[in-house]
Amino acid sequence: MNAPAKVSDRLSATGTANALELRNVSKYFGALAALEDINITVRPGERRAVLGSNGAGKTTLFNCVTGDFLATTGNIRFFGEDISEFPPHERIRRGLRRTYQISLLFTGLSVRDNIYLSCVGVSRRRFSFLRPRRDDALMAAADNLVDVVHLTDDRDTLVSNLSYGQQRQLEIAMALAGAPRFILFDEPAAGLSPTERRELVDILNGLPGHMGYIIIEHDMDVALRVAESVTMMHNGRIFKEGKPAEIEEDPEVQALYLGGDDG
């Protein structure tokens, strides 16, 4: 490698880089193109909503960013660093987090222990043979997150005994563990009651300003209140990007998406 390239690499790995940059990302399942030629740029601290009908490729997009699936082609940069080939845990350790559309929780553990496990995962104590002491800093961090998502009263409840809405909140808490720089929320509001939705909006709006995210959200109302930019997806492609107001008014969008088939 020649020297100038190295310098620019290092420069782009520092603060000036975009939080997330996807270049020509495609994902094929056999012949099915779940993602085709996706280009997205998200600035640090930016909050973006992704909208699109069922099967549009939104979850697949997340899976490619986190490394749950490797993208078939294309290039993904996270704060300037090329993470395209990284295994999931390496991406997570760099400050990326996600939630799952269908909750993936440890149902045999309590709320607090699920979050504790999340805190340990991005700490240096992953391989510690020592049990947590009462004044354990990670346990304290976990307790704090329990409060953030309003599960204080259910701190010691087994996850299998939580309501659906509470499980969704726990998913969010697990994504907030450690010091995330960027979070991918996969339909966190789906199936929530109006009250729970309001709480969710408050939690998202209460996140520190530097914490950017992408949220997949069907409900325009929620999306408008938690995101400052919107990306519309359809059939594995991005077909519109802009401010929420622009998107809402766009006739093409209205015909295709808001006009009825928001599955």
Binding site: T66, G67, D68, P87, P88, H89, I92, R93, R98, Y100, L104, L105, F106, L117, S118, G121, V122, R126, M174, A177, G178
Partner: peptide, 10 residues
């Protein structure tokens, strides 16, 4: 899969 998404190298 969940553990990987929490930063663990399974």
């Amino acid at each position: 899969r969940r553990m990987s998404a929490l930063g663990y190298n399974a």
